[in-house]
Simulated assay, not measured.
Amino acid sequence: MIFSAASWAAIYFLVWWTALFLVLPFSGRSQSEAGDVTPGTEPGAPFSARMGRVIVITTIVATLVFVAINLLLTQELFGLDDIPFLPRFEQAR
């Protein structure tokens, strides 16, 4: 096994967090776009955040990316030794 379960969980968390910032800008409209600016707030503030929808889309995107990373690393299509700037590691027998 190339990584422990805790390592895979950490990788998934990092992928999910990165996907959140990828999905977040596409999630909603600003107050100025909606035409309903609340006095005292920034016109670019979200009108409706729809965070439940953002979390679901983020989870789907992160899961697809994570599966691709998992397949690349576990099916030996691409390994850590293929990255040129990392040191070479020998497997213990």
Rank of each mutant, 00 (worst) to 15 (best):
3 F>T: 07
3 F>I: 08
3 F>P: 09
4 S>N: 00
6 A>T: 10
7 S>V: 12
9 A>M: 01
10 A>T: 13
10 A>H: 03
12 Y>K: 03
13 F>H: 14
14 L>H: 07
15 V>C: 06
15 V>S: 00
21 F>K: 07
22 L>N: 10
22 L>W: 14
22 L>E: 11
23 V>S: 04
24 L>R: 14
25 P>Q: 05
25 P>N: 05
26 F>P: 12
26 F>E: 10
27 S>N: 10
27 S>G: 10
27 S>T: 12
30 S>P: 01
30 S>M: 00
31 Q>R: 01
32 S>W: 13
33 E>Q: 10
33 E>W: 09
35 G>W: 06
38 T>E: 15
39 P>V: 03
42 E>A: 14
42 E>M: 14
48 S>A: 15
50 R>E: 14
52 G>Y: 01
53 R>W: 06
53 R>L: 07
54 V>H: 09
55 I>S: 14
55 I>Y: 13
56 V>H: 07
57 I>T: 11
59 T>F: 09
60 I>E: 05
62 A>V: 02
64 L>S: 08
66 F>T: 00
68 A>V: 13
69 I>F: 02
73 L>D: 04
73 L>M: 08
74 T>V: 14
76 E>V: 13
77 L>S: 03
77 L>W: 15
78 F>K: 12
79 G>L: 03
83 I>P: 01
83 I>R: 11
84 P>S: 05
84 P>A: 01
85 F>I: 12
85 F>A: 09
87 P>G: 02
88 R>Q: 13
89 F>N: 11
90 E>Y: 07
90 E>K: 15
91 Q>W: 12
92 A>V: 11
